[in-house]
Write a protein that binds this DNA or RNA. Structure first.
Length: 161
DNA sequence: GCCAACGTTGGC
DNA sequence: GCCAACGTTGGC
């Protein structure tokens, strides 16, 4: 099982919003970046762990964990002319953009702030913390994931790995 | 294929 | 609100 970090602005869908959503799940659609697209299409698998990160927030940080419950499939919004992510150049038989479905697992007992992660030497190499990183779906190592869950106050982080 | 211009992200 | 960093677009 692989581990990922998803960025989302909490004004759009906070982790608490996801917990309240029907089935505690949502379609992760609207991603229009080729690097993230490749990950969604080729790498994310059902059962993978997702660190749910609030970006552009006060404070920014990891709020909870989720799981991929449906692997990559064509993002329907690319074919919807009314959707801001509509892509007239994408064809149904060769879709350009992909989505997954994620389901909330649990909220972290302690919100793990960006500053808290920066202060943790074991996370020094984490992709999120690298300067200029804007990728909205990014890989996280199992070791990094474990540290984040530990910072988040989970008593038995290994149970989630 | 190069690269300037532009738009977006996201921390601060 | 500022602005650095990055991705994308499009002229050539």
């Amino acid at each position: 099982m692989k581990h990922w970090l998803f960025k989302v602005e909490p004004d759009v869908l906070s982790f608490d919003d996801l917990l309240r959503a029907k089935g505690r799940r949502t379609v992760w659609d609207g991603v229009r970046n080729y690097t993230a697209r490749n990950l969604l299409r080729d790498e994310l698998a059902r059962g993978d762990l997702v660190l749910y990160y609030h970006s552009n927030a006060e404070p920014s940080g990891v709020a909870g964990i989720a799981r991929v419950v449906r692997a990559g499939h064509p993002d329907p919004t690319q074919f919807d002319p009314a959707h801001p992510g509509h892509d007239p150049a994408s064809r149904a038989e060769d879709p350009r953009w992909f989505a997954v479905v994620v389901q909330a697992v649990r909220k972290l007992p302690r919100f793990v702030t960006l500053a808290g992660m920066r202060a943790e030497p074991r996370l020094a190499r984490m992709a999120l913390l690298r300067r200029g990183n804007r990728l909205s779906v990014q890989p996280v190592t199992v070791a990094e994931s474990r540290v984040v869950l530990e910072l988040g106050g989970l008593e038995r982080p290994e149970l989630e790995l």
